[in-house]
Design a protein around this nucleic acid. Sequence first.
DNA 1: AAGATGGGGCAGCCATATTGACGTATCTAA
DNA 2: TTAGATACGTCAATATGGCTGCCCCATCTT
Lengths: 169, 169
Amino acid sequence: MAAPSSVSVAPTASPLFLREHEVRRGVELLFFGYTRLTRAIDDGLAEHGLGRAHHRALYFIARQPDLTISELLKILAITKQSLGRVLTDLAERELVETRSGVVDRRQKLLRLTAEGVRFEAQLFDALRTSLASAYAAAGQESVTGFWRVLEGLIPAEDKAMVIALQKDI
Amino acid sequence: MAAPSSVSVAPTASPLFLREHEVRRGVELLFFGYTRLTRAIDDGLAEHGLGRAHHRALYFIARQPDLTISELLKILAITKQSLGRVLTDLAERELVETRSGVVDRRQKLLRLTAEGVRFEAQLFDALRTSLASAYAAAGQESVTGFWRVLEGLIPAEDKAMVIALQKDI
DNA sequence: AAGATGGGGCAGCCATATTGACGTATCTAA
DNA sequence: TTAGATACGTCAATATGGCTGCCCCATCTT
């Protein structure tokens, strides 16, 4: 195994991609990384009486204004009913508003209100703080690898969706 | 966030001044990657009437046999009650068994049964398939970066725990 | 006009998490 | 030896965020 730096948990990857301990390392780092990042915004959400499900909706609406319900459903991969509850809460708090679709009036186009934008930005700040420090600690060249591996975890049928998201900025 | 720095060397933005886009990309890739990987084992779990919470316990017990309850609680960062239910289910299905601690008889040392080992290995296979293909698609250098960034997301107080896990292979 | 689609909603259920309090066995230190 | 800390189990009550199945309306497409 390549020599780990004295501070690093993770030694460099060996070319043997199928080795169990390398897979386990990925599984648990993904678990810890995801759950710990997620927790970074719990307090901010709790101030408004909201949970993580609300943030996920808020996040993707911020990311892609005028998203339709069905697009958001595909992204979140939950049921209409589950999303419905979340959106009701967000609408009641006037963080999200909808308009009828222009091309198809059955659609509802989702947008953040001004207050929604402010709130999402506040939550995003906590995410940025965590991720920026991880990026900085790992080094810019590691970030590319981080992205590449995660992209490889996305099933082919979902990839177009993720690419569409990232086109907008 | 961080104060302006005069030490920027890289031609691209300094890691401390990440553009929003780079952070958002990390956030959503982490979301998609984690949730999609997680779903890879849902069917296998459902065959035994178990959920993801059960798998998390199973996974870490497999990873570190003779783990104590309190160590597992720290890893999972859930309450004793939540874990209790999960462990009861696993014990009923004879996937996990406990012994009294040798040095401290108040402790319960958690282990998988033979059947538990078999079942965890079966679930792990689905994870391995997904992760190995992501590793292969991304390439060796990327895997190292993937690990390093995730490692940076783990709060300092949790790092020792993760290192302990990975010492055992 | 008929059918497909986008969205809303009801009832009921399940999995997983929470808090707080309390009990028991066991270990440790004054 | 005893007092207190620790490891674990367990109670009750509650919250969140998922799910299925079914039915509704408005609108678009053919």
